[in-house]
Amino acid sequence: MTGETGKLPHVQCPACGGKAFARTSGKHSLTYREAYYHCRNPDACGHQFVVEMVATRSVKPSRFPRPKVVLPLTTWRTAANDRAANDDGPPGEPVAGTMTDR
């Protein structure tokens, strides 16, 4: 179950806060993948954990859509919500009219 781990970003180790890097990854479906991370803390944390990556929504429709994959369409600001004052809490429900079905 190996993949192109060099292209996956490093993440923060949930145990010690050090940098963790992807060791292997596997594609389970068109919208779901797991990546296995290993902590590289110089103090020898050694924590190993799995990160799930899931395609949840589209911010721009594809010019070449796959019929088997239909993701809800949202605007970038609604999806990212980067400049909102409420970014510290969990995401709220989508605003009516921002998601469309295909």
Rank of each mutant, 00 (worst) to 15 (best):
N86E: 13
V54Q: 13
T56I: 08
W76E: 04
T78Y: 00
C13G: 13
T74K: 15
N81R: 15
P14K: 15
H28C: 02
R83T: 03
K68Q: 13
G46Y: 03
G3M: 07
T5L: 01
K27Q: 12
A79P: 00
A35G: 07
R83F: 14
N41M: 02
C39K: 07
P65N: 09
D87K: 15
A55E: 00
H38M: 09
K60A: 11
G92K: 15
A15W: 02
K27E: 00
R63Q: 09
L73V: 13
A96L: 08
P90Y: 09
D88Q: 11
T74P: 00
T78L: 05
R57W: 01
R23S: 11
S25E: 03
F21E: 05
A55Q: 07
V70I: 08
P94N: 13
F64G: 06
D101P: 15
N86C: 10
D101V: 05
S58W: 15
A84W: 04
S62G: 08
T78I: 00
H28S: 04
L71W: 05
T100Y: 09
V51L: 14
S62V: 06
D82E: 14
E34I: 05
V69Y: 01
E93Y: 01
V54S: 12
H38E: 01
V51F: 05
E52R: 11
W76F: 10
P90T: 04
R63N: 08
L8V: 03
P65F: 03
C13L: 12
A35P: 01
T78F: 00
D88Y: 11
A22Y: 01
D87N: 11
P65K: 02
A84R: 06
L30A: 09
P14T: 08
H10C: 14
P91N: 14
G18E: 02
G6L: 09
H10Y: 06
G92W: 07
C39W: 11
Q12G: 10
L73F: 10
A55T: 00
A44V: 06
A80G: 08
G17V: 09
Y37T: 03
A79W: 02
K60M: 08
R33C: 07
L30G: 11
L73E: 04
V95G: 13
T78N: 14
M53N: 08
M1I: 09
D88R: 08
V50A: 08
E93M: 15
A44M: 08
